[in-house]
Simulated assay, not measured.
Amino acid sequence: MSRVGKYPVPVPAGVQVALQGRTIVAKGRNGELKLDLTDDVDVEIAANAVAVRPRREDRRSRTMWGTTRSLINGMVQGVSTGFVKEMEINGTGYRAAVQGKDLVLNLGYSHEIRYPIPPGIKITCERPTAIKVEGADKRQVGQVAAEIRAFRRPEPYKGKGIKYANEQILRKEGKKK
């Protein structure tokens, strides 16, 4: 039995969850998200909860049971409160700014990097060395943050680069004389 899948997903006030054929739709103050269901699970929408059940007792149905429940929980949480990834930039002269619909990064290269902000994502820079990525879709927020981090990963000697706010960089000792 799935330890994750057996618990129903609570639906908070202000969020509507509907089942349209084999697609589940969640609407809230942060927008609307859709999830196409596999043929391995059944979804039941009760008063203020969404329950997921496997259709068969095979291995694939049991694995998709917990996965589907987690995806629905992420959708409900995303449309109600949203997801945030905070990032920090370390390095002399390294900075970020939002200009129009682009994130402009100066990361020590000979040119500035312009990253177009995808729809459904909000990027803010409170300081030139802090980036905040917000959105309703957990997967998309994580993907955008990973793409921004990939422009200049933190290096282990001085710690220069873009890192997540809660990330610990393993530092190495430099050359010895």
Rank of each mutant, 00 (worst) to 15 (best):
M75N: 02
V84N: 07
W65K: 07
R69Q: 12
N90K: 15
V79K: 01
A47W: 09
A97C: 07
M87I: 01
A49P: 01
T92M: 05
S80G: 07
P54C: 00
M75E: 02
T63P: 00
N73R: 14
G78I: 01
T92W: 08
G93P: 00
E86F: 05
Q77N: 12
T68E: 00
E57L: 08
I45H: 04
N73V: 02
I72L: 02
G82S: 06
N73W: 10
Q99L: 14
R62A: 08
T92L: 10
M64F: 09
M64H: 14
E88H: 12
N73Q: 15
V84G: 05
G66K: 07
K85Q: 15
A49Q: 15
R69S: 14
L71Q: 14
M75Y: 08
R53S: 10
N48E: 09
N90D: 09
V52S: 01
V79F: 11
I89C: 05
Y94R: 09
I89W: 10
T81G: 08
V98H: 02
R53G: 04
M87Q: 07
E88T: 15
N90T: 15
G91L: 06
A97K: 15
A96Y: 00
G78R: 02
R55A: 03
E57A: 13
M75F: 11
D58W: 04
E88L: 15
F83P: 00
G91H: 09
N48V: 07
A51D: 03
I72N: 00
P54W: 07
T81Y: 07
P54T: 06
V50Y: 01
G74W: 11
R55W: 06
V98S: 06
T81W: 11
T67R: 14
V98Q: 07
I89M: 02
R69F: 06
G93V: 00
R59I: 12
P54H: 07
A46W: 07
Q77T: 10
I45R: 02
R60A: 09
D58E: 03
T81N: 12
T92S: 13
T67E: 12
P54V: 04
G78D: 05
A46I: 09
L71E: 13
E57C: 05
A97T: 08
S61N: 10
A96C: 05
R56E: 06
E86Q: 13
Q99A: 13
G74A: 15
E57Q: 12
E88D: 12
V52T: 04
R53T: 11
P54I: 02
M75D: 04
N73D: 12
Q99N: 13
E88Y: 11
T81E: 13
D58M: 06
N48M: 05
S61H: 13
V76Y: 06
N73E: 13
G82E: 03
